[in-house]
Design a protein around this nucleic acid. Sequence first.
DNA 1: CATTTTTTTTCAAACGTTTGAATTGACCTT
DNA 2: AAGGTCAATTCAAACGTTTGAAAAAAAATG
Lengths: 333, 333
Amino acid sequence: MPTIKDIAEKLNISYSTVSLALRDSPKVKKKTLKLVKQTADEIGYRPNCIARSLVLQKSILVAMITPDISSPFYARIVEGAEAACRKKGYNMLICNTNWDPKWEEKHLNLILERRIDGAVIAPCKIKNDYLDKILSAKLPIAFVSSQYPHKDKDNLIFRGADNIEGGYLATCFILKKKQKAIAFIGGSINSVSLVHRMEGYYMGIDEADFPRENVYTYTGDFSQNSGYENSLKALHEHPEITCLICLNDLIAMGALKASRETGRKVPEDIGIIGYDDTYLASLDAVQLTSVYQPKYQMGYEAMNKLLDRLESDEENEPLSKLLHCKLSIRNSV
Amino acid sequence: MPTIKDIAEKLNISYSTVSLALRDSPKVKKKTLKLVKQTADEIGYRPNCIARSLVLQKSILVAMITPDISSPFYARIVEGAEAACRKKGYNMLICNTNWDPKWEEKHLNLILERRIDGAVIAPCKIKNDYLDKILSAKLPIAFVSSQYPHKDKDNLIFRGADNIEGGYLATCFILKKKQKAIAFIGGSINSVSLVHRMEGYYMGIDEADFPRENVYTYTGDFSQNSGYENSLKALHEHPEITCLICLNDLIAMGALKASRETGRKVPEDIGIIGYDDTYLASLDAVQLTSVYQPKYQMGYEAMNKLLDRLESDEENEPLSKLLHCKLSIRNSV
DNA sequence: CATTTTTTTTCAAACGTTTGAATTGACCTT
DNA sequence: AAGGTCAATTCAAACGTTTGAAAAAAAATG
């Protein structure tokens, strides 16, 4: 592949001049500039980003770390982040952790070694030693979806939805109608956002004076299958349940299936409410009532803020911002 | 950030030795090796991939270009590709083209400049001048999903499903039952795979001696909404239609909605068949019969083959491989 | 025409690695 | 004691850029 030197030799000028010319420096004579660009085209010259990165000490490369890029929730966040990158001319590395902290660590290490300029991360665990280490290593990081508890918390970029609000909206809504018993389906408490969400759920429950002994909890992971099995179990152990509160839409899909299989009609016999309001919920065949989170916006703003920080030090709006949830009411409650 | 030189100075040895030691060269005394690694740990040394890439002339970085990473079809392909990268220790850049050849070109250019080692691409257009240029620039590229027509075709890596077979399976299946009229919904012919798919569809139609004048075609894009609108139009213009053949699952979702809204029951009054067999089709609430493509496998194998080629020149299995489709029969026909 | 000023070009070091060739020093042979 | 072998280390160039400082060339000034 041709280099700057090749152009220089061909034109019999120094390669400093070529370098300057290629970047439209006003220092170089217009005639030379044109000549340089022309021969660059001719021999098919491409700037070498690697060399450039080495001297400039930045890579114009940024990473996005998510637990599961194939989930409709994270996919939408990734989309937003990608859009922000595209707009600013950055490239984005995508790293899937599969909910495994080991892989999260591995990816973060690689990011450090690649001298990536920064990363947006949707952490898969509430707290991590290596995340602390990375944060003290001053690698610019933005958190999305889940806030990270860190001593220097006020200096962290974060975009996520108000999960307390989201949970609160959900239980308020379902308890407007009379419920005999309700159950939470899915989600082990391993992230801050879930803790908040539960807090919100219970706020609504207490406010409606619904007896806590009629609230059951079934923990599991975030998959459709886990939702299915836990719902079956719940409906079997407590047939009086009139509403399944699912910790995301995928789980709700499983709950829908379980309800139907046990001969219950939705929403007549049982209510089901999801969380995230992914496009699954909006499918005509599904029509799931769900708590909307501004996923795209979260991804976009987190990345955008990160890139802002990379490019200048002036900060205008706050680093951390909690976005509002709202209820997408459809036909499952 | 500390460098090799820092370690060398601290230990009063040359930095060549440090470099060797860090990579476990047998040339360096065990005692020194241990000492080097220890101090590297102490001062928090991280190898600098950029410098390394510059001298080694490779970046251990690979790109995946897709039209739409948020579509369940491509997302699954990306997952497969990502898995292959992870296994071999490569990082993957993800590039979204949004079905826009302009962005495809831009991404390819950046890939060239970044000295990315290679790319897997799911092209958004049947033919492109700049893709030709890139191919002659000898950047290792693997095609996935859509085959690319190129003079040096036999030397291209490709993994995709047999779309002729897939289309054939679909029409054979629906024509086992009696149909009055059928319609194709969605998809403009801009990719080789679609051409093949249509060929397959018609193979089945002709084999069943179904009259071609009872076959209608409605073109559009690949979105749910396009599926919805085209289906409405089709059912309005030709109420006798008894089956909608959708060019992907998203379109089928729209068709499902349109059918329901016009008071038709699925599958009693109208049959709907999708393509790709994404997890949308498998949702309990949806139960869409669809043509399965091995998406994950396509992504995985394309990337894997690409990485193989990057690491050695020996080729054992063929570069290009057409995978089999099969019918996932559910409850919509 | 000699000076000064301005424009344009070149020099050379730097970024952090890798690596073939050269060097050093220890130990063994004869 | 000279020569040879081997292990361990060091030298120095290379990868392809950028950039402040120096130099050269051109233009303006008196």
